[in-house]
Amino acid sequence: MPIFEGQLITMIAQLILAATIFALLRRSRSGERLPKIRRLAGLDAIDEAIGRATEMGRPTIFGNGSGGLNSAQTIASFSVLEYAARSCARYDTQLIAVSYVASVYPVMEAIVRTSYLELGKGDSYDPVNTVRFIASGWGASASALQGTMRRERVAACLFMGSYYAETTMITEVGANLGAIQVAGTANTAQLPFMISSCDYTLIGEEFYAAGAYLSKDDVQKVNLVALDYAKAITVIVIIIGALLATFGDASHLKNFLNY
């Protein structure tokens, strides 16, 4: 079977990662223990933020940025949204989930509605105001989000997803309101702004790992362990490549990876 030039190793790497996830899942389901997972401080902060909003009787706002359904960050944000929706439903705290992306909106709506219904809190779910599509494009969305945060006087802000230039505008409004803010993104350019204005920030892969910590699902935990194995292999390849390039010839390794 012909294979595109330079793609074989990439395809094998992806298949190995998939096989590792399956193998670890089987191990976990047969009762074998998985390595212990360190809990991130930022995730405890989500409980703290929703708890504070409950005490103050003010809403919690959740946003997942401008990534579409084809963005891994958006998919990762859904686990956090589900967790936040369940916590808000349990404590009768008002949740406002906002979407900038038309195709993401119905998914968010379904996640929040299902979470409320499963906890028997269907009456607390407002089909128009709980999940809102605010605007398309970051500029209009940022101003809509700022307005919503100020008008509703939110006490907790959870910003998880693909954020761009609007980061500072919304997190600074949250800081001015005195809200507890927990943010997470893999958009590296926005990390400094989140770190400077938010109480906790999930950096890069920590954000992807958030789902595993929040969920009791084996699949998520297994995924995290597989990810660590992949990272260890990547680091080893980088070190070998750096040593070869410094002291010898790295072309064989380069050719192999481009095979």
Partner: peptide
Amino acid sequence: MGAALGASATAIR
């Protein structure tokens, strides 16, 4: 790199 690995693991999932 960390984020890319996280994204590809999410995609594979």
